[in-house]
Nucleic acid binder design. Structure first.
Length: 531
DNA sequence: AGCTGCGTAATGCGTTTAAC
DNA sequence: GTTAAACGCATTACGCAGCT
């Protein structure tokens, strides 16, 4: 690598591309670019570029200059890059790439998309270094000690050569002694492989502490995130007009690919509060979820309508049945469960409007119904209204609760009291969300998912109150859902089944066991009334 | 209400450096 | 030689985003 060549290429690039830098032309940033490249080269070659600190070891014991972060092996990743140089330097990546100093890989490799799912963690990632879009304009404020070797007592570059000052002067022979060619593939693969082996062991060890079927659900998620239809997803991201919030399409693709590679991996197989199971699939944007294929076939999902509020109606109306479910795992004091259920059931008996709520929430779309009754603009507003009011304590969302009082009476006063602190206490108890989430998970994971696993159905994924699976398993999921609720002595809730045909069109189907039941009862009454 | 993620800024601590 | 500033790196906090 010759410095003169580098400078020449950079100046040509500036002239041809006319990149807009903070300085307008960016000419005097040339040295910064050179310095960036030097450090990239050093990082890639693991050449010591820091002073004595380079002998440091990281907490994980690695002695490399580069290190592992939450985003995986980040020798040249945007994280390290930004930390080292600030966002402003990312723009030079394009120059380095166009002149083949750096290789920037595509977002995903078509050949590597298909995973058998045999190995939970798949092949160690080889592809690194995604194209980078600068987001900020911050100038670098940190630098490195150039030209000083490890354990050397000789003078390094003086401090004023650091990035925020004039720097990057050539050495006597006219070229930077710190420039090396960048070869990224094998080394990164090796490091990454080591890292993911370790991560795999840690993850499996952690999983072993959870119930078997939750472990299996986690393994299913491993399979699903490695079976993404990237081509369809990219096509969809390119054509869709309404971007998901501010998230650029390219980031979605990048993020999903990170999941596929195992670079981003997180899971909470049972959160302490509500025993919910959190995986990347529960958090991914809803619209992207359908690209996570179970076996390459169209996806399907089963979603309980207004699940939490339907469950709330069960707490009011079916205390014995709920008691069984809530005390099944022994995680909650039975006295607390009894207290909540007794309180709610007493209110249910006392207030006909609470009984009206229990009827409404099971027979119609609560959010839309409320929106219509209160003259709100749309269903979403009704939903936000309920979520705010239902999980609040006394003194919060009072205006909302006031609006709902004519419809459902003392309902929200009762739930608010249970969410607020107990007598002589100041801590919020949040008993409603806790009970609802635990009830929900007892039914969905310990109930529906466990049944499906026993029946050998899979893979599928639970997303708190819905099931993500393939079209051929839909009937089994419906059966398991109905059996679970029936066996628990609870009414089967209304749920939506969403499937996708071969052309990619969506078919939504609403299944209303409760409404059917009401209709049957009504007809019985009619028959009785007209003998 | 809970759980995640990312991005940024601030902070803490031990070390290194520049300036006196 | 001493001292104050600067630095590397880890951690933390916060606000935004997403999901149910």
């Amino acid at each position: 690598m010759n410095e003169a060549t580098f400078r020449q290429q950079f100046q040509r690039w500036i002239a041809a591309e006319q990149p807009t830098f903070e300085t307008g032309k960016g000419a005097f940033l040339e040295d910064e670019c050179l310095h960036l490249f030097s450090t990239l080269a050093l990082t890639a070659g693991l050449t010591i570029y820091r002073s004595k600190r380079s002998a440091d070891t990281f907490k994980d014991g690695s002695k490399a200059v580069t290190k592992q972060t939450a985003l995986g092996y980040t020798g040249l990743s945007r994280d390290n890059l930004r930390q080292q140089f600030g966002n402003g330097y990312a723009k030079y990546i394009e120059f380095l790439r166009t002149h083949n100093y750096l290789q920037v890989y595509e977002f995903y490799d078509k050949e590597g998309l298909i995973s058998t799912g045999d190995d939970l963690f798949g092949v160690a990632p080889v592809k690194r270094n995604y194209s980078y879009k600068a987001k900020g304009h911050k100038k670098a404020n940190t630098g490195s000690y150039i030209g000083k070797n490890s354990s050397s007592s000789e003078q390094g570059m003086p401090k004023h050569y650091r990035l925020h000052n004039d720097h990057a002067l050539p050495t006597e022979n006219g070229s930077f002694d710190v420039l090396y060619s960048v070869e990224m593939g094998p080394k990164y693969s090796h490091k990454a492989h080591r890292y993911y082996t370790k991560l795999k062991d840690q993850t499996l060890a952690r999983r072993a502490g959870f119930p078997k079927h939750r472990q299996v659900l986690a393994e299913y998620v491993d399979t699903l995130v490695r079976n993404v239809d990237f081509e369809d997803m990219e096509a969809w991201l390119r054509t869709t007009t309404d971007q998901m919030q501010d998230m650029p399409p390219v980031w979605s693709l990048y993020y999903v690919d990170l999941l596929r590679q195992g670079i981003i991996q997180y899971e909470n197989l049972s959160c302490g509060f509500g025993h919910r199971l959190h995986t990347p699939l529960t958090n991914i944007a809803t619209e992207l979820r359908r690209f996570f294929k179970v076996d390459g076939s169209p996806v399907a999902s089963l979603d309980i309508r207004c699940s939490q509020f339907v469950l709330a109606s069960y707490l009011f109306e079916y205390p014995e049945q709920c008691y069984q479910l809530l005390t099944a795992d022994g995680d909650m004091p039975t006295a607390t469960v009894s207290y909540v259920l007794d309180t709610l059931h007493a209110a249910y008996n006392a207030d006909p409007k609470i009984r009206q709520y229990c009827h409404d929430v099971r027979t119609q779309d609560l959010y839309a119904h409320t929106a219509a009754e209160l003259g709100l603009s749309d269903r979403g507003t009704g939903k936000n209204l309920w979520f705010g009011a239902f999980f609040s304590m006394p003194g919060e969302f009072e205006h909302t609760k006031q609006k709902l009082r004519p419809l459902y009476g003392t309902l929200l006063d009762v739930t608010s009291a249970l969410n607020g602190p107990g007598e002589g206490d100041t801590e919020k108890r949040n008993l409603m969300p806790m009970m609802l989430q635990r009830l929900e998970q007892q039914l969905i994971i310990e109930g529906v998912a466990a049944r499906l696993l026993d029946a050998g159905i899979g893979p599928f994924a639970t997303i708190h109150d819905s099931i993500h699976t393939n079209a051929t398993s839909v009937d089994a999921v419906i059966s398991a859902l109905q059996a679970t609720y029936t066996d628990a002595g609870l009414p089967v809730p209304t749920f939506k089944v969403e499937t996708e045909d071969e052309q990619g069109a969506f078919i939504k189907q609403l299944i209303e066991p409760a409404a059917a039941l009401v209709a049957v009862q009504a007809s019985i009454e009619v028959i009785v009334a007209n003998p």
